[in-house]
């Protein structure tokens, strides 16, 4: 084996090692916290009081906030995203679709801090006015901005799933005298179902992990919000806001890594489910 081939092999193994290393390292930093923690109050409790004595670290409020904002982003983004993908894959002339795909790809690159800035200056005041709220810095504003941010992921993956449906399906359907509308909804979309579900799941993963936008727009209430129209703080924002504040190996430091581990595990689970959906479909086909 030439040495170059050995080098690329090492590079390949690096990816695996790195993923394992990141997980294990974060877990190792979180371990001292879980060792002290005898019950489930970390997950079920509502108090995050890092500067009180003694401090309390409970993350239910952050988990609920992440869940609310993600759900809103996906529920708003999904119909629009999937319908857009259908338009791209089935309705528009090829050269138009190619151009629009590039446009979506580009919008995916708009940095989240830029979205956060727009959310802060434009969306939040607008939301406060329209819904007559006490403050516009709420989960709703963050969810609204996030629903736009997940669209590129959603559209490109859904578009890919739709285009992966063999052309013969559509042709067979047309041969039976169906309209394009019927073919799309009765043949192509059902055939692409697995890929579409995976697209939604991956968009969800993206929304859960989004940090800057929610840090700037969601409002930063540290306890469980009663509704989406209240200020809240998702788990990503908690980590970004506090991690550099905690002295290394302090209780807060370990608690934040515990929160990071929870976030990591959630995104891994979402990814694994998406992969299983795609993989299961492949085996069935």
């Amino acid at each position: 084996m030439p040495y170059q081939q050995k080098l690329v092999t090492v590079a390949g193994y690096t990816v695996l090692l790195l993923t394992a290393a990141i997980f294990l390292f974060v877990a190792a930093q979180a371990w001292p916290f879980f060792r002290e923690q005898v019950d489930l109050s970390f997950f079920t409790g509502d108090r995050w009081l890092p500067v009180s004595s003694p401090p309390t670290f409970q993350i239910k409020g952050f988990l609920v906030s992440s869940f609310m904002i993600t759900t809103m982003a996906v529920v708003l983004g999904c119909p629009i995203g999937i319908l857009s993908a259908v338009s791209l894959a089935e309705l528009l002339p090829r050269h138009v679709s190619v151009l629009l795909r590039s446009v979506f790809e580009m919008t995916a690159g708009i940095p989240s801090v830029v979205w956060g800035f727009l959310g802060l200056t434009v969306i939040a005041p607008f939301v406060a006015r329209v819904f007559n709220l006490n403050t516009g810095l709420t989960g709703f504003s963050a969810g609204l901005v996030l629903s736009v941010m997940v669209l590129p992921t959603l559209v490109s993956l859904a578009d890919e799933a739709l285009r992966a449906v063999p052309r013969e399906y559509a042709e067979a359907s047309y041969a039976l005298g169906t309209t394009r509308w019927q073919t799309i909804w009765r043949v192509i979309v059902p055939a692409a179902r697995g890929g579409l579900v995976a697209a939604v799941l991956l968009a969800m993963g993206r929304a859960i992990g989004e940090t800057m936008t929610v840090l700037m727009v969601a409002g930063g209430r540290l306890t469980t919000p009663g509704s989406i129209f209240e200020p809240m703080r998702p788990i990503t924002a908690l980590i970004a806001a506090e991690v550099t504040n905690a002295a290394r190996h302090s209780e807060q430091y370990h608690a934040l890594f515990a929160a990071g581990l929870v976030l990591f595990t959630i995104t891994l689970a979402v990814n694994a489910i998406a992969a299983a959906v795609i993989g299961g479909k492949k085996e069935a086909g």
Binding site: G219, L222, T244
Partner: peptide, 25 residues
Amino acid sequence: TTSGTHVFFKDFVLDEAEFAPATMM
């Protein structure tokens, strides 16, 4: 909670009691 002002306010004004849960950080 990372802020010294937060801690000063909590110690000095709230006499170390907790902020109301609805407080926006």
